[in-house]
């Protein structure tokens, strides 16, 4: 097993699986958070429903595991890859033979996302704990927290930037999952590539709309 872990392809396979998990999560997280546009109550109920769910720790730890594995493998790949080169070329390749910016910068966008997640968790999950009661059920007032956080233009700016970075990461990442897991087909791959980009944009726009909305409206 350890042997396997060291092989190039297995590392990629782990990247793909964890990437898949994370991509699924962000879409879900984004859609769920859209309840913000409905009402504070709906938003908070949603948050409560999740955190009070018996399998929540599983999801939570699973996510953390995904991020950690993804990061470790990403950095490991980067180290191997750096060592495999013996220098860079004097000129960048021309457009006909170039690859996309997103694909070339996965490592850098990834690290930025890591910063974002750390600060995000610090500010949200482990942020100020307000309470609110609906129909006698006590729960966390995440809505209030959000409103507070996004009062600061600095925070909004940081979120928007990070989400653009996430968008770039995903615009390559989502279709890359298929390749890493061994799926490439002349009929489907071009479609998957388009879906990957759409996915990235939808997630990013969906998320970005929230801080902007809060900042402008509240």
């Amino acid at each position: 097993m350890l042997q396997l872990l060291k092989t190039s392809i297995f590392k990629k396979f782990v990247m793909g699986l964890t990437g898949l998990g994370l991509s699924g999560f962000v879409l879900g997280h984004m859609t769920g958070n859209l309840l913000l546009f409905k009402s504070a109550e709906a938003y908070n109920h949603y948050g409560h429903a999740i955190t009070s769910n018996p399998i929540y720790p599983l999801i939570s730890w699973g996510l953390i595991a995904c991020v950690v594995l993804h990061m470790i493998m990403g950095l490991w790949l980067a180290k191997d890859n750096y060592q495999a080169k013996s220098g860079t070329y004097a000129l960048a390749s021309t457009s006909a033979k170039d690859s996309t910016f997103a694909s070339k910068s996965m490592m850098y966008t990834g690290v930025l996302i890591l910063f974002f997640i750390t600060s995000h968790l610090y500010g949200m999950k482990y942020g100020t704990y307000y309470e609110v009661t609906y129909d006698g059920v006590e729960m966390r007032d995440l809505h209030r927290l959000i409103l507070e956080v996004f009062q600061s233009p600095l925070n909004v700016f940081w979120y928007v930037i990070s989400l653009v970075v996430l968008c770039i990461h995903l615009s390559h990442g989502v279709s890359s999952i298929f390749q890493s897991l061994g799926f490439n087909h002349p009929r489907y791959t071009p479609v998957i590539k388009i879906i990957g980009v759409v996915y990235a944009v939808v997630v990013a726009v969906g998320f970005i709309s929230q801080p902007i909305y809060v900042y402008l409206v509240h």
Binding site: K12, A84, S176, L181, N184
Partner: peptide
Amino acid sequence: GFGNCTNTGACEAACPKEITLENIARMNR
């Protein structure tokens, strides 16, 4: 000591025989 693939596709573009990335996916699988 060759590096790992991060699916950038530069190889496919440079390959004089136009070998496709499908072959890498097949190998992964």
